[in-house]
């Protein structure tokens, strides 16, 4: 008897992230023929992305393809995925994954399957050439950066002026000069047309994408061991496969933007160290203020 799992994803169906998830779904449905079947019910049109964690918790939906950052209200510790400098593989090996598994079960009524599309970080993109400082950093105070709530605190701590806007408004803001910088992943940056205005990319990247595939725990427990094994195995191999795909796509799209005239500004020395440490500090401090219980343990595995 085939079990059906209802799933939703957090981006529109054509988006890279949804496409990646749909590949996972295909793999499961192929391997699980007759045992388990994932039925994708849609994306943001079915459930608003920041409420999907709640819907998974209360069993409205069985499976999610949603970043941990979108339901930190339920599992604040999930921020460790984006603050981490380690790859999903390392985290699985050093026991961090099992710890997270415990936390997600307790707080989000969720069972984690995989941290997919990992490895890509966020970059700051600027319209004007950033002014370098003596310590290898950048004069952040010149920047008016469009941000999402996820990294707002960090950008403010850098000393930049931050404006929170939805993706639909950014094009016009860049065109009109309301903002002169933007923070986003390389992946998908061009699809919004922003690369036309932001001719400089600041390296290194900060944070990393934290897209998870997870399931409602009750639903997971109700699955046959055979179905669980199919899901776990496919998830594990897909975690690797998707990270490789992201790396390849990121490289490709970065090159396309460089070919179109984008220049890279690389931080170095003390400026770079400060940039990265401020990024990680902002996240860990916020996690600690929300719930300190697991923080020291998490630091051991993720930092």
């Amino acid at each position: 008897k085939e079990t059906t799992i209802n799933a939703v994803h957090f981006t529109p169906a054509q988006n890279t992230y949804a496409q990646s998830f749909l590949k996972f779904v295909d793999e499961v449905n192929k391997a699980g023929k007759g045992v388990v079947k994932i039925n994708v019910r849609g994306g943001p049109e079915v459930l608003p992305p920041d409420q999907q964690g709640e819907a998974q918790k209360n069993g409205l939906i069985d499976m999610l393809n949603t970043p941990a950052g979108l339901y930190l209200n339920l599992v604040p510790e999930g921020e460790a995925f984006s603050a981490s400098t380690k790859s999903p593989e390392e985290v699985r090996e050093n026991g961090g994954w099992d710890l997270m598994q415990k936390i997600y079960a307790k707080k989000g009524n969720a069972h984690l399957l995989a941290h997919i599309d990992a490895g890509a970080g966020f970059h700051i993109f600027t319209v004007d050439q950033p002014k370098k400082t003596d310590d290898g950093g950048i004069d952040w105070s010149k920047l008016k950066i469009r941000s999402s709530p996820l990294y707002r605190t960090f950008l403010e701590n850098l000393g930049a002026t931050v404006i929170v806007q939805s993706p639909g408004e950014i094009y016009t803001s860049l065109e009109r000069g309301v903002v002169n910088a933007n923070a986003y992943t390389i992946l998908g940056y061009q699809s919004f047309g922003w690369d036309k205005f932001t001719k400089y990319r600041v390296d290194p990247s900060f944070f990393q994408t934290d897209v998870l595939i997870s399931m409602n725990k009750d639903k997971w427990d109700s699955l046959s061991p055979e179905a669980q094994k199919i899901l776990t195995d496919t998830a594990k191999s897909f975690e690797k496969e998707s990270a490789e795909a992201v790396e390849k796509d990121t490289k490709e799209q970065a090159q396309q933007m460089i070919d179109a005239g984008q220049k890279i500004v690389t931080l170095s020395g003390k400026g770079k160290d400060e940039f990265l440490s401020k990024a990680s500090k902002a996240s860990w401090q916020r996690m600690e203020s929300r719930d300190p219980t697991y923080i020291s343990e998490l630091r051991k595995h993720f930092q």
């Binding site: 008016k144 403010e156 002026t161 931050v162």
Partner: peptide, 14 residues
């Protein structure tokens, strides 16, 4: 505030 190059109200939008 933003146009005076002062820090805007960070909690304002939310």
């Amino acid at each position: 505030l933003r146009n005076l190059n002062l820090r805007p109200i960070s909690w304002g939008v939310s």
